[in-house]
Amino acid sequence: MMRIFYTLAISLVLTISFAFAQVPRLVHYQGELENAEGELFTGTTDLQIGIYKSPRAEKPTWIEIHTNVEIQNGIYSVMLGSQNPLKLSFYEYFLEAKSPDFESGARRKMIVGSGYNYRLGFLFSAYTIVWVAIFLFMLSIFSRQKKLINELGLIGKLQKEKASA
């Protein structure tokens, strides 16, 4: 019982420290540039990509400018974090793309769906928890076993001494 608590507590601490270490990562993002009428942009332009905490927040949490992005029928794809290191924590954000050549009327997109691959931290932390917990559990079993065998030897010795005396 206590073994389980110790094991899990230690593995949780290890993993949380690992998971919350915010390493900058690259995220491939594909979006659509359209105006309020739904017209799509085609051509080459500069894009300013901003990430906001809410659909109406004025101050972006993170911003980056991509120059000469080729856009076909409104579809563009950029590597977020390639210009400005991307450091975000776990929660959902709203992404907005602005172009000086095109009046974008689209609403900010919530990035939590398939385009947002900023998820490896979750995978690795889960994996680490599982294996660290199993490893520590086994370690505790083995160390306890070793102690008990020593104790057993000691008791046997004492009994022998008593018998001879």
């Binding site: 398939s114 691959n117 998820r119 490896l120 979750f122 995978l123 889960a126 994996y127």
Partner: peptide, 9 residues
């Protein structure tokens, strides 16, 4: 496709 790498959990 829809969940990305995290699906490996």
């Amino acid at each position: 496709r829809s969940m990305g790498h995290v699906q490996r959990i």
